[in-house]
């Protein structure tokens, strides 16, 4: 809460908050109504890459190292990465946390918590059909800039991160 408030203050005076140490593999449920406030809004002032994935999605798991590598190459830039899992909530600890911990994934991770997956998909982006993997890039104001549904390479993620910073198309 304090960190989010500090981020908003810094964003308000034009300074992007620095990256904080990645949390442990804690996976936080997020409802459709909470998506903007919990997932996107805390990163205002920085570009944000939100990667939607699931442990059952092989290309999602396969592209994760590329996302980590791209994030590390952008370490000195104001870009954050957040994961949102489409796994069943019951899989949160056994599958999702376990995968993140074993793969040493340094990102915060949410897990969708909707009675009906359609509600969550539409809350994120009405044009999205629900296919995974899916990555959305937000600019520093939290505006959605681009979305891709193919598994990305490290260079692909770098390009997306630069788009979030307003560099290149």
């Amino acid at each position: 809460m304090k960190a989010a408030a500090a981020a908003l203050v810094l964003a308000g005076i034009g300074l992007a908050p620095a990256r904080t140490a990645p949390p442990a593999a804690r996976v936080v449920p997020v409802t459709p109504a909470e998506f903007r406030s919990k997932v996107v809004a805390p990163h205002r002032g920085r570009a944000l890459v939100v990667n939607f994935w699931a442990t059952w999605c092989v290309p999602c798991r396969e592209e994760m190292p590329a996302l980590v590598a791209a994030y590390r190459r952008m370490a000195d830039r104001p870009v954050d990465v957040v994961l949102v899992s489409a796994d069943a909530l019951a899989e949160r600890d056994a599958a999702v946390s376990d995968f993140l911990r074993k793969a040493s994934i340094p990102f915060s991770c949410f897990i969708e918590n909707a009675r009906d997956p359609e509600d969550f998909i539409n809350a994120v982006e009405p044009a999205w059909g629900g296919e995974l993997p899916h990555t959305i890039v937000y600019d520093r104001e939290g505006k959605s800039l681009v979305a891709v549904s193919d598994a990305q390479t490290e260079d692909g993620f770098l390009r997306l991160m630069r788009r979030g910073l307003g560099e290149g198309m």
């Binding site: 290309p59 997956p117 359609e118 629900g130 296919e131 995974l132």
Partner: peptide, 10 residues
């Protein structure tokens, strides 16, 4: 028209 999650067509 309805939606769910699924695997991207390769």
């Amino acid at each position: 028209e309805t939606k769910a999650f699924g695997c991207t067509i390769k």
